[in-house]
C-alpha cells in the first residue's frame, strides 16, 4: 500500500469510525453473546449455564406454542404479503392513470402509514369491535346474521390483523407508483402503435418494468412480517389470545425473554428466526431470477 493509499484508508476509517465502533458494540458483541446464550439456561440473576443444543431440541420437539407461533406467523405473512402486493399494484396502477386530485389520493393512501402503531392497534380494535364496531354494523346491513367476532374469536383474529396491515400499506403503494413513473413513455407509445390494449400493456410492460420494485417490497415485507409484534401485542394485551391465535413468533419470543426470563431459550428462538429469514430471502432472490426483469442494467 502506497503512502497516499494509506492516508486515504485512515481518513475513510476515521469518517466511519462512529458507526464502526457501534457495529462492534451493538452487533458483533450481541451476535456472539446471543449465540452463546442460546446454548445455555440463563435467567439473568445467575450466570448462564451451558446445556448444548437442548434449547433447540426442546423448541422443536416439545414446545407446542413454538409450533403455533410459527403457524400464526406464516399464516399472517402468507396472506398479508400477496394481498398487500396485489392491492398496492392495483392502487398504484389507478393512480398512474393521471387522475385529477392525485395529491389528495396519495395523501389518503399514505396517511395510515404515519399513524403510530399503538394508535393503529387501538383504532382497529374499536372499528372491528364485534358488537359495537362500525364494520360489523355495515356487514349486518348487508344481511349477514352472524358477523365475525374479529379479535375476540380465534378464527377471525388473524384476518383482522391482515385487514389492519392492508390499510397501512401506503409505503409500498408510493414505491410502486414511483417505479411506474420511471418507465420510459416510448414503450407505451410503441405498444399503442401495435394496437395493444390496456391489459396487455400492464402485463407486458408495466409489470416486468416494476418487477425489481416488487422484489424490493416483497423482501422488506417478509422481514417485517416475520418480526410482526406491536399490533398483536397491544390488541391482545401482551397475551396472544384468544386461544393463542395472535401469538406471533416474536410475541412468544418476547414472553419467553421478558415475562419468564428464559433468556437462553429466547435467544435460540431469535437465531432460528434469523436463519429462517436468511433462507427465505435467499430463496426469494434465487427464484426472482425467473420473474424479475433487469432491463438495460
Amino acid at each position: 500500500m502506497s503512502k497516499g493509499e494509506r492516508k486515504k484508508l485512515i481518513i475513510g476509517l476515521a469518517f466511519i469510525s462512529p458507526w464502526l465502533l457501534g457495529f462492534f458494540i451493538f452487533y458483533i458483541y450481541p451476535f456472539i453473546a446471543s449465540i452463546y446464550y442460546s446454548f445455555t439456561v440463563y435467567h439473568i440473576i445467575s450466570p448462564p449455564e451451558f446445556i448444548g443444543l437442548r434449547n433447540y431440541v426442546d423448541l422443536i420437539t416439545r414446545d407446542p406454542l413454538f409450533i403455533i407461533s410459527i403457524k400464526n406467523t406464516l399464516y399472517y405473512a402468507g396472506i398479508s404479503l400477496p394481498l398487500g402486493i396485489l392491492m398496492g399494484i392495483i392502487i398504484a396502477l389507478l393512480l398512474n392513470t393521471r387522475v385529477k386530485g392525485m395529491a389528495f389520493y396519495r395523501t389518503i393512501f399514505f396517511l395510515p402509514v404515519v399513524v403510530p402503531f399503538a394508535a393503529h392497534a387501538i383504532l382497529w380494535k374499536w372499528i372491528l369491535n364485534p358488537r359495537y364496531g362500525i364494520i360489523n354494523y355495515l356487514i349486518g346491513l348487508l344481511g349477514v346474521k352472524h358477523p365475525p367476532g374479529w379479535f375476540q374469536v380465534a378464527g377471525w383474529a388473524k384476518p383482522g390483523l391482515i385487514i389492519m396491515a392492508l390499510w397501512a400499506s401506503g409505503q409500498a403503494i408510493i414505491i410502486y407508483l414511483a417505479g411506474m413513473q420511471d418507465i420510459p413513455k416510448t414503450l407505451f407509445e410503441v405498444a399503442d402503435l401495435d394496437g395493444a390494449n390496456w391489459f396487455q400493456k400492464i402485463k407486458n410492460i408495466t409489470l416486468p418494468m416494476i418487477s425489481n420494485v416488487i422484489l424490493f417490497n416483497l423482501v422488506m415485507g417478509l422481514i417485517q412480517a416475520f418480526q410482526f409484534f406491536t399490533q398483536p401485542f397491544i390488541i391482545s394485551k401482551g397475551t396472544g389470545r384468544p386461544m393463542d391465535s395472535m401469538l406471533m413468533y416474536n410475541l412468544y419470543l418476547y414472553k419467553q425473554a421478558f415475562k419468564f426470563f428464559n433468556m437462553g431459550y429466547a435467544c435460540a428462538m431469535a437465531w432460528l428466526l434469523f436463519v429462517a429469514i436468511i433462507l427465505i430471502t435467499l430463496f426469494v432472490f434465487k427464484t426472482s431470477k425467473n420473474w424479475v426483469f433487469y432491463g438495460g442494467e
Binding site: K8, I11, G12, F15, Y29, I223, C267, A270, L273
Partner: peptide
C-alpha cells in the same frame, strides 16, 4: 471518499438491516 475496503464495509453495514432486532435485543438488555 475512495479507500480500500470501503465497499466491503458498506455491504456489511447494509447487511445489519437484515438482522432481526430480537437477535441482538437480549444481549443488549
Amino acid at each position: 471518499l475512495k479507500w480500500k475496503g470501503r465497499d466491503i464495509f458498506f455491504y456489511i453495514m447494509l447487511a445489519t438491516m437484515m438482522v432481526p432486532f430480537q437477535v441482538i435485543l437480549i444481549p443488549l438488555f
